[in-house]
Simulated scan of single mutants.
Amino acid sequence: MHIQKKTVLLVVLLVALAALAFWYVMKPVTAKSGAPVAVPVRVVSVVQKDVPRFASGIGTVLSLHSVVIRPQIDGILTRLLVKEGQQVKKDDLLATIDDRSIRASLDQARAQLGESQAQLAVAQINLKRYKLLSVDDGVSKQTYDQQQALVNQLKATAQGNQAAIDAAQVQLSYTRIRSPVTGRVGIRNVDEGNFLRTSDTDGLFTVTQIDPIAVEFALPQQMLPTLQRLMAAPEQALVQAYIGADGTSGEMLGEGRLSLIDNQINANTGTLRAKAEFSNAAQRLWPGQLVTLKIQTALDKNALVVPPTVVQRGLEHPFVYRIKGDQVENVPVVMVYQDSDLHIIKGVSAGDQLVSDGQSRLKPGTRIQVLGDPVAQANVSEPKP
């Protein structure tokens, strides 16, 4: 009997311990199901600012003036007055050609002109005399007419001699080669002492204008209305040239203005050529260089800007999660502009705090926990082209 009581007490004790353990295990679950856990998220604030829009393309740097210096007469190159790579101005003397033969021809033409002018003077005096004598029939009409013809002949001869002088002076001017443009001297092809011919195709060297300079580029034909609008604007559109493969990672070489669009579209490629002009005092743009161009096509003033991660895609329209107290609400938005760096939206206000990370666990009314301090401004930059 005593043993049975001990057994019963032991069973009761074991049951009580089991019940206590079961209650202890189940208590946290009940508490957890009763109070929802806050979802951790990161937030940004909507920023209001002016946002420029850009289009981009690959272009080639071109000189506005590039001249091959060639001789205009045959002769020996006597002097080269510039060095390779030298900056020259328009009308600077570059080289000289042996001019002795041309000067001799010029002196001869001047002597012949003097002779003709002397003969013409005598013939004109005789003509006056014959004219007076013909009044009293002191000389025949035929003699007078012959003298008149001689005067006309000598006048023509004098004019021909003057033309020969002018031609010789032009030839003489060709012996002094001057720069037709302001620019940079290229690599020299001939040295002093060589015999130059007008048929030489290579020329002496080139003179290439570096400042200002142009960049020619191609854009899709769909850009034609935009380019026409930019050309018709009171101020020429801003164009930036970069050395990199895109307009962000590369180094900017200069800023210029859109100056020209071509008068036809390439039917084979569906592209339209255009040209921009750049000031190039630092000579960072070089003829023949390939560059990436960014063209400012528009400016959105007071735009509401957010990072791309903020906007979610809904079945009917894009939306964002806006912070409301310790919960979120679903706000439909309109996409005005988007690229890989930023989105411009409508439907929210400047300063609104929006969820930028953690949206997959959210729905309207979900309690949230903001990780870290709320970001004062969205970390966005100018849009990529």
Rank of each mutant, 00 (worst) to 15 (best):
A282G: 14
L272V: 09
H317D: 09
R273H: 14
L342A: 12
S259P: 07
G254V: 00
T271C: 11
L258C: 03
V305H: 06
E277L: 12
I265H: 10
A303R: 07
F319K: 02
Q264Y: 12
G288W: 06
G347V: 04
V348M: 06
F319V: 02
G358M: 03
G314V: 06
V311W: 01
I345Q: 02
Q296R: 03
Y337L: 13
V320C: 01
G325E: 05
R284T: 13
I345D: 01
V334P: 11
L299T: 08
L293M: 03
A276V: 01
P332W: 09
V348T: 03
G351L: 05
L260Q: 11
P332N: 09
T269C: 09
D262T: 11
Q353Y: 06
I344T: 10
D326N: 14
P308S: 08
V331K: 02
D357S: 15
S259K: 08
K275M: 11
V306Q: 08
V355I: 00
V355T: 07
Q264R: 15
E316G: 11
I265W: 09
T297Y: 06
V355F: 02
V291W: 02
D352Y: 00
V306Y: 03
D339S: 12
A274P: 04
H343V: 14
I261E: 06
L258V: 03
L258S: 02
P307C: 02
L285Y: 01
N266H: 10
W286I: 14
A276M: 07
P332I: 07
Y321T: 07
I295S: 07
A303L: 04
F319A: 03
V331H: 03
Q289G: 00
